[in-house]
């Protein structure tokens, strides 16, 4: 039996496409968790990264925080939060946000810090204020790297959101966890395929966003 057989069987079963346990519902749940976590993480990490990168200070502290956050095992944290906080979104959000913050934070900081200093000097010399320098000069140039940090975070969040099912939440992980319990490999493999597909869709999404928002003058060499 190859996994392709399972995949085929899973997707051709019409019953998998409807109802509270249907694929559309699970995908929406999964996206909900993922984007919520990503939004919170970006809300924390982007401003901090932009400001520290702009001023060029606090790099070592950031590196330390990022290393510590990275050391936290997401799966373990999820189970622990489940014990402490019970069933709900919060225990899922904590490990997902902890997972997404380091890549966004570190890349944003580095992206802004490593912007070529001479246009920044020119901009200040032309009479641009600090906010204009950050948003009109530094940010557009730093954008590709910042987006790659966000993309990396998004991929990891989408992957890890699958384990939310382990603590009784929905999302595509539901198929994998339930299937494993029921020893129903068709569902397990089908769920896993969907998760992988969603992660790949994230790559495509970020590629598209980059095409749209990054100036061709910056995109060169990619």
């Amino acid at each position: 039996m190859s996994i392709f057989h399972f995949i085929n069987a899973f997707f051709s079963d019409g019953s998998h496409w409807h109802g509270y346990d249907g694929i559309p519902t699970r995908i929406m749940e999964h996206l909900q968790y993922s984007f919520m976590a990503l939004g919170i993480a970006a809300g924390i990490a982007l401003p901090v990264g932009l400001i520290t990168g702009h001023t060029g200070r606090g790099g070592n502290a950031l590196a330390l925080i990022a290393t510590a956050a990275r050391a936290l095992p997401s799966f373990g944290l999820l189970v622990l939060m489940f014990f402490w906080l019970g069933i709900g979104l919060t225990p899922v959000m904590i490990p997902l946000v902890a997972l997404a913050v380091p890549p966004i934070l570190v890349t944003t900081y580095e992206a802004v810090r490593t912007v070529d200093p001479s246009p920044v000097d020119a901009a200040r010399g032309m009479g641009m204020g600090p906010a204009a320098v950050l948003f009109q000069v530094e940010l557009p140039v730093a954008l590709p790297l910042i987006l790659s940090g966000l993309r990396s975070a998004a991929i990891q969040v989408v992957s890890t959101a699958a384990i939310a099912a382990y603590v009784s939440l929905g999302g595509l992980g539901r198929y994998v966890i339930d299937g494993l319990y029921q020893r129903n490999y068709e569902i397990v493999v089908g769920g896993a395929t969907l998760i992988a597909g969603l992660a790949l869709a994230m790559i495509a999404l970020f590629w598209l966003v980059e095409r749209l928002v990054v100036s061709p003058g910056v995109r060169r060499g990619r």
Partner: peptide, 19 residues
């Protein structure tokens, strides 16, 4: 910034905005 806008400023590597 009013002062700076009244003076042209040219630097070594031009410092153009690549975007």
């Amino acid at each position: 910034n009013t002062l700076r806008r009244s003076m042209g400023y040219v630097i070594q590597n031009a410092g153009l905005f690549q975007h």
